[in-house]
Amino acid sequence: MIELDIQYASEAADLPTQPQLLHWVTTALNGAKQTEPVELTIRIVDAEEGQALNRDYRQRDYATNVLSFPFDADIELPVQLLGDLVICAPVVAREASEQQKLLLAHWAHMVVHGCLHLLGYDHIDDDDAVTMESLEIAIMAELGFANPYPDELH
């Protein structure tokens, strides 16, 4: 079971629907073999909020595509709180255009990518990047989308 809280804090056009977001999250978690009930939040923001969060939490003064905030609790909870994803709508739209990707496919990729970060996957070193990106490619294929990393060897 997945409990997904979706917060639309952007007036951007062409935002994914709640059913689309839930489908992408479910497929990402299934692809990563997450079987426990989980709860997470996706907040879709504009550039100003995205930049402020990136600056305050990562010391990078620009809006980025997706930020993940894993939840870390020292107590036992009835459901696993994965954390929060913050996705910046104008950055996703700009990147999709620049990379000549379908906007919907790029949205799906940002959700998948963020979910994997919440589960502890990372891409800081090359070995971890290969593991995470290979899983992203498989999940995106399951969703019916092309490889989000077509210029890299996998």
Rank of each mutant, 00 (worst) to 15 (best):
N54T: 13
A141Y: 02
I2P: 04
T64A: 05
H117W: 09
E142P: 04
Q34W: 03
N30F: 07
Q20C: 02
D126N: 14
Q51G: 00
E39W: 14
D125Q: 10
A93H: 12
E98A: 11
R60A: 13
Y62M: 10
L85A: 01
E3D: 12
Q100E: 15
L103I: 12
H113D: 05
E36S: 09
E98G: 01
N147I: 10
D56R: 14
Q20T: 10
P90K: 01
Q20A: 11
R60Q: 14
T64R: 01
L22V: 05
A32F: 04
E136C: 10
N147A: 02
H23A: 15
R94N: 12
L67T: 06
S134K: 09
N30V: 06
Y121T: 08
L40W: 06
P78C: 04
D128W: 13
D61L: 04
S10T: 12
F145P: 02
E49R: 14
Q20M: 13
Q80I: 11
A47I: 02
I42G: 00
V91H: 05
P16G: 03
H117E: 10
V25D: 04
K33N: 15
E36T: 12
E142L: 08
A32V: 00
A129S: 10
G31M: 02
H23F: 01
E76A: 15
Q59I: 14
M1I: 11
G114F: 03
A9V: 00
N147L: 11
A28H: 04
P37L: 02
L21G: 09
C115H: 07
D122Y: 07
L153I: 14
A32K: 07
R58K: 13
H117M: 06
H106S: 08
E76F: 07
M132P: 03
A108G: 08
A146S: 15
R55W: 08
A96E: 07
G120W: 07
Q51V: 05
V79G: 12
P37N: 00
L135V: 08
D128C: 12
G144Q: 06
L22K: 08
K33D: 15
D72H: 13
R43C: 07
R43P: 08
I42W: 07
D127M: 11
C88L: 01
A146F: 05
G144H: 04
A141G: 09
